[in-house]
């Protein structure tokens, strides 16, 4: 499938929201890739940090929200420190997470969990699951 790039897509709500939440001007990115080059978590990411930024530039909301990358981000800020254009990439990652969290989707239904499962789960996993709206 050919991806349709248009004025409407480039200026869609998702891009506006990311810009607002992160306070970053995504246009500044010229895709040098330094953020990905230094990222300690990139080896398990499906989209590299620079690809996340590129996807925001292109308004590809779906690609980003379905990606594991923002959740694997360790917020170590190496990307932010390295960026030659001064973009706070970690903030953009946080903005992506915020958008997902603010949708208030229930990732965990505590009542539906088996007693055994709850016993096996590390407590932090449950805390993370309830984190929505608190970030």
């Amino acid at each position: 499938m050919r991806l349709e790039i248009s004025l409407g897509r480039l200026r869609n709500e998702f891009v506006a929201k990311i810009t607002e939440l992160s306070g970053q001007d995504i246009n500044l990115c010229y895709q040098c890739g330094k953020c990905s080059a230094g990222c300690p978590m990139s080896f398990i990411m499906d989209l590299l940090p620079n690809q996340v930024i590129r996807s925001v530039q292109l308004g590809l909301a779906e690609d980003i929200t379905s990606s594991r990358t923002p959740w694997l981000c360790a917020s170590c800020l190496v990307c932010t420190v390295r960026c030659p254009k001064g973009i706070d990439i970690a903030s953009v990652m946080e903005a992506v997470r915020q958008i997902a969290l603010r949708r208030s989707e229930d990732f965990i239904d505590p009542a539906g969990l088996e007693r055994d499962t709850v016993a096996e789960l590390p407590p932090i996993a449950l805390v993370c699951g309830f984190r929505k709206l608190t970030g």
């Binding site: 050919r2 991806l3 349709e4 790039i5 895709q31 590129r54 292109l58 590809l60």
Partner: peptide, 10 residues
């Protein structure tokens, strides 16, 4: 767009 590796249409 070779940066995202996808065919595009404008």
């Amino acid at each position: 767009d070779t940066l995202i590796g996808r065919n595009i249409e404008i």
